[in-house]
Amino acid sequence: MSIKADNLTWKIGRKTILDGVTMEAQPGRMLGLLGPNGSGKTSLLRLLAGLKRPHSGSVTLDRNDIGKIDRRSIARRIAFVEQHATTNANLKVVDVVKLGRFPHRSMFSGWTRADEEAVEGALSRAGMAEKRDHRWQDLSGGEKQRTHIARALAQSPRELILDEPTNHLDIQHQIGLMRLVSDLPITSIVALHDLNHAAMFCDALIIMQQGKIVASGAPQDVLSESLLRDVFSIEARVESSPYHSRPHIHYLR
């Protein structure tokens, strides 16, 4: 088992943002969240990461209520990369990544070999090892995003949650980042805007609309022309890719 949500409801004031959401992330698989702006994707991710508590329903981590798990223990297990993640200080890349080790260290513990191996492994996997001594402010947008993912990986998580990680990146960095995440041997939950990226890289999809899940399943079972019309208000043709079994979406004028 991994992360599971059961009948989640979450509100801001009197406005219901999530309404009866039930879902489960399969261990070691990549789950994509899709939906128009305002559909509740970010709110769901924050609940799954234990950063917010639902008004009703529950989030469980291996059958344990996440609301009863202390924050430090959650951070050892789940890494969350927010949509507008930033780093204010002009640190070196390696120092940003080292921040990911905080949940594993006590106030008085020194830097250990395990910490060093986790950081070096995260830098390597995120493709930032050669940039380790570069300053944060000198990085490109794609490099900054990879650094944030490296910091998340330095937490040694079993679950990785990302909120629209490809926003504002050029196409080369978008594809590279999606390939990086899909190749990770951990559970990942990723909110996305690009439907073809979701179809290409995700093992399963959840489609959200107005705070509810309206469809879920494998990309080829979920992404249909009628769903794209009804949920996203777009006219498109959904075809099988000649290179793999995943669907490909052609947008129509």
Rank of each mutant, 00 (worst) to 15 (best):
S224A: 10
S224C: 01
S224K: 10
E225S: 01
S226D: 11
S226V: 09
S226L: 12
L227R: 02
L228Y: 03
L228H: 04
R229K: 06
R229T: 14
D230Y: 03
D230G: 13
D230S: 15
D230A: 08
D230T: 14
D230M: 10
V231G: 04
V231I: 04
V231K: 05
F232G: 06
F232M: 02
S233M: 12
S233E: 13
S233F: 05
I234W: 09
E235L: 12
E235S: 15
A236F: 07
A236M: 07
R237P: 10
R237G: 00
V238E: 11
V238A: 07
V238W: 08
E239C: 07
E239M: 13
E239G: 07
E239H: 13
E239L: 13
E239D: 15
E239Y: 04
E239F: 09
S240Q: 14
S240H: 05
S240K: 11
S241N: 14
S241I: 14
S241E: 08
S241F: 09
P242R: 06
P242E: 07
Y243M: 10
Y243R: 07
Y243L: 13
Y243H: 12
H244F: 13
H244L: 04
H244Q: 07
H244K: 04
S245Q: 05
S245W: 06
S245H: 14
S245L: 10
S245F: 05
R246V: 09
R246E: 08
R246P: 08
P247N: 00
P247H: 07
P247L: 02
H248N: 10
H248A: 06
H248C: 05
H250M: 06
Y251D: 05
L252T: 06
L252M: 10
L252H: 06
L252N: 02
L252S: 00
L252D: 11
L252P: 01
R253E: 06
R253L: 07
R253C: 03
R253H: 00
